[in-house]
Design a protein around this nucleic acid. Structure first.
Length: 454
RNA sequence: GGCGACGUGGCCAAGUGGUUAAGGCGGGGGUCUGCAAAACCCCUAUCAGCGGUUCGAAUCCGCUCGUCGCCUCCA
């Protein structure tokens, strides 16, 4: 199995360890999760599912950064506490992830509940000469960190040349970053050896990862926008504190979702929330859309693309229709498709190629079932491998659908009586009008079936 | 300005040195059907441009053009 490691910039053989220690950077819960988040968490969900499919055990930890400037600012604007605001958006986040069929991590540590470990880690850095206090703040001493910039492949000099580095008199070096922020009026605060305050941005991930997974991780993941400064700083301070290298053996980063020609991001305000997408499209469609390109490449969102993905999802679902009569022909052997799926996924999680194998399996199953072949094994394989990609491939009928079912069935029977007596005009009218209500009728050789359109 | 990624059919998107350049969506034609729908079959590209390396390149190198990302909060 091979995967591309941001640290080396190379596609490397994945040297297995069991259980695999997987840390994925979570969200700052100050707003609804958007489809950029969906993309990232779908990708890491698939990576985890595939590792498990390949027989590894995976211990998956994902944080919530529930103290942060924007979270505090928003809470103050709304007259709520930061904690309340975070609680609400965390609940909403879990709703979204459940709806997307994203498996839950084993642990979801929250910054506000991990302050002691964070303080301890900063103390360790201070003892080892990597941190210094100025006023109530504590900074990380970037110049002392050997190899700083190795993850994002840039040098301190190169970054300084960017000229957008703000000069702060308090800091020894402009790139030094804050580990502990001294308290400001009206902000959440905790006691510490440096006075009351709260953690800086990057330190929480180090503290939580080390606490729940140990001093060296197998895989650390997140969006490409986190490579610098977040992951760079996380790696630097973790290695500085523990002396263990590397902090993470494999760094995996997904490409960013774009809307039009720009990245979708909170600061640009060009967001589409997960809830908005799921009100119009199925989770399978969103997953198919995300997985149809390679996870490291950027992807451009559009409603048309989602609609296309929905059609594709429909086709896979269709292939799973039950076979009514007992099949007599040669059973379809899914093994070659199974193997193609594995070969694709083993190669840096090439989900696009893996999906191609599934589509071809679906087509082959549809093709041979018409000649009476047994496709139950093929369907089982499609279901299983689809499941590895987190696809449910089921029609999600709402409560309305379930309640309307007997009435729809009644209309279908009535219409078939009309068809039997060749009253096609009326029969078509029933079909058309049900269609307008979102109910699709299909007359097959074995009878009429119906399903809901989205 | 520094670092990096990308440019493949109408759209999305795999492939990264050598059989007929995956797959999805869309479009066209057909089979099936009372008609549809679904399903299936057939058709729909020479890989941004230029130059080079090589027996051979979409795939390696250089240049040009274009797009995007990071360098500041961000999955």
């Amino acid at each position: 199995m091979k995967l591309t490691n941001t640290l080396t910039g190379q596609k490397e053989e994945f040297a297995s360890q069991d259980p695999i220690k997987l840390y994925v950077c979570g969200v700052t819960p100050y707003d609804e999760a958007h489809i950029g988040h969906a993309m990232s968490y779908i990708i890491f969900d698939v990576i985890r599912r595939y590792l498990e499919f390949r027989g590894y055990r995976v211990r998956h930890v994902q944080n919530f950064t529930d103290v942060d400037d924007k979270l505090i600012a928003r809470a103050q604007r709304l007259g709520a506490s930061a904690l309340q605001l975070a609680d609400g958006f965390i609940a909403s986040y879990f709703q979204d992830m459940d709806a997307l069929n994203v498996q839950r991590a084993h642990v979801y540590p929250r910054v506000t509940e991990e302050i002691p470990s964070i303080v301890q880690l900063i103390q360790r850095l201070e003892e080892r000469g990597y941190a210094y206090a100025v006023g109530g703040d504590v900074y990380f001493r970037v110049q002392r960190a050997e190899g700083y910039g190795k993850l994002s492949h840039r040098s301190l000099d190169g970054m300084m040349a960017g000229a957008r580095v703000e000069v702060d008199e308090a800091k020894e070096h402009p790139m030094d970053f804050v580990l502990w922020k001294g308290v400001k009026p009206g902000e959440p605060q905790w006691e510490s050896p440096w006075g009351p305050g709260r953690p800086g941005w990057h330190i929480e991930c180090s503290a939580m990862a080390i606490k729940y997974l140990g001093e060296s991780l197998d895989i650390h993941g997140g969006g490409q926008d986190l490579v610098f400064p977040h992951h760079e700083n996380e790696a630097a301070q973790s290695e500085a504190a523990t002396g263990v290298q590397p902090f993470a053996r494999y760094w995996l980063h997904n490409g960013l979702l774009r809307l039009g020609e720009e990245k979708m991001s909170k600061s640009l305000g060009n967001l589409v929330t997960i809830k908005e997408v799921l009100s119009a499209h199925s989770a399978d469609a969103l997953r198919l859309f995300v997985l149809s390109s390679h996870y490291r490449n950027p992807l451009t969102y559009s409603d048309e693309a989602l609609a296309g993905a929905e059609r594709g999802a429909d086709r896979l679902r269709e292939a799973l229709r039950p076979v009514p009569e007992p099949a007599t022909g040669q059973p379809l052997d899914p093994a070659p498709f199974h193997q193609r799926f594995i070969d694709a996924m083993d190669d840096d999680f090439n989900t696009a190629q893996a999906l191609a194998a599934l589509f071809e399996l679906a087509r082959e199953a549809n093709r041979v079932r018409e000649t009476g072949s047994d496709v139950t094994q093929a369907q089982q394989a499609l279901r299983e491998l689809g499941g590895v990609l987190g696809l449910t491939l089921t029609q999600q009928e709402g409560d309305e659908g379930r309640q309307a079912a007997p009435f729809i069935q009644l209309l279908v029977q009535l219409r078939n009586d009309l068809r039997a007596s060749k009253e096609y005009a009326l029969a078509d009218k029933i079909r058309d009008q049900l269609g307008e209500l979102g109910v699709l009728l299909e007359d097959g050789p074995t009878g009429t079936t119906w399903r809901q359109k989205r």
